[in-house]
């Protein structure tokens, strides 16, 4: 690991100033950053340690009913916050299906949003990767790409965003509060992450010095609580990134869908909101045929970026399943195996 300057600001303003210097990176838990630094994937000159800043570790309900979560709230704290989990059960389920208890105890909300792709070629410093080095090329194309993107990818990058947490968050119109050199601003989560297009080196729209200080879940989101689920297909029963995942949330009235939210994980370089599916679902009777139509609509633009055509079919199927699970109701408690196909009590037939 390259030597770096370690600075510890005492206010957000100081932190932003420090991190505005070129070559700086924010250090929260470091769960992803240190991993990347050890692998030689990133090599910042300066770490701006924000873990000691006060006021960023709160979960609060604002006057307008939206829920604001400080960027330094730990993943586990949020998932186990009883009030939060009862209002946003799919978010809690997603959090608990990610990584391990140890990592969830350390990793922060802000850090989760900003975690980098798990593409093996991004991590392998000897491979060509446009995300790591602009213009270097993409060795994932034509390489080992069974788990790569099927939506929103470009010839320059076929990586995926690895977060579970972000998938239900994007479905619920989460807003990201950012503080930067020019002051505070809000960014809808759906607009935080960049698709690769021609500039895959850019993960997010954040500018130098920008710091995520909180996220907000709008008040309207908790109306989905009785019918919202997160489901994640992976290659181990636990402790594996999603092959494909889905968040599905419904507002139902006597079997009729008033409003639907659907998002996919593991399919693109950002958490993928499936608005076409949502539109198709709204106003209709919740049944299997409708769910299939919605799933088809969600994947209409999907195409394989390598040996991963199966992910398109898998994504359709997981949407259908997640919708049917959501329709049958949120369980009282997150299952022993969160978001798993093997969580008992899950009915598999719609």
């Amino acid at each position: 690991m390259k030597s770096f300057e370690y600075v510890r600001p005492t206010t957000v303003r100081e932190a932003v100033a420090a991190a505005s210097e070129p070559g700086s990176a924010y250090l929260a838990a470091g769960s992803n950053l240190l991993d990347l630094m050890k692998g030689g994937v990133v090599a910042p000159d300066r770490l701006v340690d924000i873990t000691h800043l006060t006021g960023l570790d709160r979960i609060e309900t604002l006057a307008n009913g939206s829920v604001r979560i400080g960027a330094l709230v730990r993943n586990a704290e949020l998932a186990h916050d009883a009030h939060f989990a009862s209002h946003f059960p799919a978010v809690a389920e997603a959090l608990l299906s990610g990584a391990t208890a140890q990592l969830r105890n350390a990793a922060t909300v802000g850090g989760n949003l900003l975690q980098r792709t798990r593409c093996g070629y991004f991590y392998d410093a000897a491979s060509a990767c446009n995300k790591r080095v602009a213009g270097a090329g993409c060795d994932a194309r034509g390489g080992d790409n069974r788990l790569h993107a099927v939506l929103g990818w470009s010839e320059n990058c076929i990586a995926t965003h690895p977060s579970d947490f972000c998938v239900p968050l994007v479905a619920f119109d989460t807003v990201v509060e950012v503080e930067g050199r020019a002051g505070k601003r809000d960014i809808p989560l759906d607009q935080l992450h960049c698709l690769p297009a021609d500039a895959p080196e850019r993960d997010t729209v954040l500018e130098r010095g920008d710091m995520i200080v909180a996220i907000r879940l709008p008040a309207a989101a908790d109306r989905f609580a009785p019918h919202s689920r997160y489901l994640k297909v992976r290659e181990r029963t636990s402790y594996a990134f999603a092959v494909v995942s889905a968040a599905a949330a419904l507002r139902l009235d006597a079997g009729r869908i008033l409003e639907a939210r659907v998002a996919l994980g593991g399919v693109a370089l950002k958490p993928w909101r499936a608005r076409e599916a949502e539109l198709l679902l709204a106003g209709n009777q919740a049944d299997a045929a409708l769910f299939h139509r919605a799933a088809t609509a969600a994947l209409v633009d999907a195409k394989p970026s390598g040996d991963n055509g199966f992910k398109i079919e898998l994504a359709r199927r997981i949407i259908v399943r997640a919708l049917s699970l959501a329709a049958s109701g949120t369980p009282a408690r997150v299952a022993a195996l969160p978001a798993s196909a093997f969580a008992s009590g899950v009915t598999h037939h719609v």
């Binding site: 370690y6 250090l27 838990a29 470091g30 769960s31 240190l34 991993d35 770490l47 340690d49 730990r74 586990a76 208890a101 140890q102 990592l103 105890n105 350390a106």
Partner: peptide, 11 residues
């Protein structure tokens, strides 16, 4: 809290 000490900067 249990954490991975390998991903925790002592500083």
């Amino acid at each position: 809290r249990r954490i991975n000490s390998c991903l925790t900067l002592a500083a």
